[in-house]
Amino acid sequence: MGIEREGGWLAAFYFIYFCALGAFMPYWGPWLHDQGQTPLAIGILTAAVQFSKVLAPNLWGWLAHFWGSRPIVMLGTLLTAAGFLALEFSAGNFIAILLITLAFSFFWAATLPLVDATTMDWAQRRSASYGRIRLWGSLGFIALSLGMGVLISIWGMQAFLPGILLFLVLAWWVSRHLPYVSQVPSSTQARPRMTPVLRDLRLWFFLLAGLLEQASHGVYYAFYSIYAEAHGLSSTSVGLLWGFAVLCEVAFFWWGDRFIRRLGIPLVFTASFVLTALRWGVIAWWPGLLWIILVQSLHAASYAAFHLAAIHWIAERFPGALRARGMALYASMVYGLGGGIGALAAGWSWAQWGGQWTFAAAGLLAFFASVFLIKGLQASPALEKKTI
């Protein structure tokens, strides 16, 4: 399989996977509402999706250590699709939806960390760019977050589940062709151990910093549209702002490896945290249209720069057969636990303090997280400036 074809399969997987995610995230709540669920039930079902990312990736990463990534990614995409098919028969029953949601989220959480590990392995072998493969996921998210809205406007919420199901089946088909590298030791080889890595406190400072940085996004994902409309923006303008933010994310993924090569992982990391704090602070205190447009460009820092630097950091710290487990640990702690805590805290803070102070608190949280980041990056030989 040539390098272009291998890269093409990886790009296709990211595009299709994030097409499904782009259809799911904006319309999961409206679909649940259409099924007659109460606001409390919607909150519980949304949190179930987030918190499934805490334990599931670690279990799947551990299994990949023994079985390899290929069977788990294929199984995960296929059984996630089966979960969305099962939702068609839930008949609006809360318990049924909850159990199905826990099931499909458990399998969905298996795929992305393992594919990230596969992509990073491939990029290092081929002297290629992880970011230029990953950006196809962002493009897929844009395509279906907009496209699903069109489908729903034509056919109603009955288009929601079949649309996601289609892309998950496609993701399963594409997963059969990814350039996996077997990192499973033979029966005569000693298996590498996680214990020495886990004993390094710098790892836990890094994970805590990432958890807090992603938790600061909770108010953005849950309430940004409401906040912007409350300050005079139309629904169309808000939608364009979301799209603009993701386009800035795509741009950084395209050029980001060059930034990391020239500036080093610690500097890119630190800048992403400081700019994240700046972003939330500007939204809190200067919510006018001009400033909101300008700070939306900082999504390139708060998400893309953070994620790209983190993937390189994890890849260096968890080499070879440990990489899938390292990616799983990162996904579960940062996006699973951090995302879940951030969503719950944002809802409480919004009710108690209102939007302005909640965004201001998010800015302080991101800035505070940089203290732990500095501790995590101290004297780490794996993070020296390097050629990618």
Rank of each mutant, 00 (worst) to 15 (best):
G137L: 08
G149N: 03
W108C: 03
L139W: 06
I142G: 00
M74E: 08
W136Q: 11
G131H: 06
A56Y: 02
F106A: 00
W122V: 09
M157N: 13
S52T: 13
G92T: 03
S90T: 14
L139R: 00
I133A: 13
A86M: 15
S129T: 13
A128Y: 12
F89V: 08
Y130A: 02
A81G: 15
A56L: 07
S52D: 08
D116S: 13
S105A: 15
R125S: 14
A128L: 08
L165N: 00
L114M: 15
I72Y: 02
G140W: 07
F106D: 00
P71H: 11
S69C: 11
V54C: 02
I97W: 02
G131Y: 03
L144R: 00
L99F: 14
L99N: 10
T80F: 00
G68V: 08
F107Q: 07
W155R: 12
R126S: 15
L63K: 11
S69H: 09
D121C: 00
L144K: 02
G76C: 09
G137D: 05
T101Q: 00
S105Q: 03
G156H: 06
G76T: 10
W60L: 07
A103P: 01
F51Y: 14
K53P: 00
L144I: 07
W62T: 13
F89L: 08
V115E: 07
L75N: 04
S138Q: 13
S145K: 03
G83E: 05
S105N: 07
Q124D: 14
W60V: 01
A110S: 15
L165Y: 11
A159S: 09
A64V: 06
F141I: 12
L85V: 15
L114C: 06
T77V: 08
F89Y: 15
F89S: 15
S153Y: 02
D121F: 04
A86N: 05
F160C: 06
R132Y: 07
I154A: 06
L79K: 09
I152P: 02
S145D: 06
L87D: 10
Q158F: 01
A82C: 14
L112N: 14
F84M: 04
L139H: 11
I97Q: 11
W67A: 10
R70W: 11
G140E: 12
A64H: 10
L78A: 15
